[in-house]
Amino acid sequence: MLEARLEQAQILKKVVEAIKDLVQDCNFDCNDAGIQLQAMDNSHVALVSMKLGSEGFSPYRCDRNIALGINLNSLMKVLRAAANEDLLTLKAEDQPDSLNLLFESSSQDRLSEYDIKLMDIDQEHLGIPDTEYAATITLPSAEFQRICRDLSALSESVSIEANKDGVKFACSGDIGNGSVTLRPHTNVEDEDKSTKIELTEPVNLTFSLKYLVNFCKASSLSATVRLCLSNEVPLLVEYQMGAGYLRFYLAPKIGD
């Protein structure tokens, strides 16, 4: 059986909130290493990959591999009943029909318990190769969110060009064009506000802003975001969580 307790319900709430508009139904794959999820969006343009390692739970017990097929809108309806600071315990049998969620508020002596029905989901699983990216950019997640939001008002697409001088996000639309250039800098008072660029070769790729804006819904999970780029391969957008990560892969656009 599965029994996994999170110190704060908000971790799962934020993950589900961030991905529910990209993915409707998906399997949460549970094993002794933790809980993982991989799912493509309906258009097969983006891939979501999430890991919550067993060390992020206390206690964590999972005797055998269990796939929890869940409708994310249903899960979100239940998770909205949990306060951010509640303890959240997930429980399921070895061959479950439902997932049990228990929310505990220590301050109010309140216990809430919900069961949601599970579904059989036959999902295509993709193997993601280990990639040495040509450019890795670490920047404040709020900064990336702002850039995507501002440029999406002008255009459907953004080019991301990274070279030794910095990273330039540029777009062109019917009303005009715009760009934001970030140069590497270190904030000595708050490391999370720094921008770092690691580069082995210059890259220039174009992506759909609609998807990037969607990925930025994960910004509350982490103060920083990592963008990994290589020419002609999908962009990796990564938000680190305490004992895991939420990753988005986005296929590039080509031509006009």
């Binding site: 493509m40 258009s43 097969h44 343009v45 983006a46 891939l47 295509e124 699983h125 993709l126 193997g127 993601i128 190769p129 459907e156 174009t206 759909s208 391969v233 999908p234 892969y249 986005l250 296929a251 590039p252 656009k253 080509i254 031509g255 006009d256």
Partner: peptide, 14 residues
Amino acid sequence: EQGQLEIVQFFKSL
């Protein structure tokens, strides 16, 4: 969308 590649073109189906 025009010119949009699919993710499955890059990652192997398991």
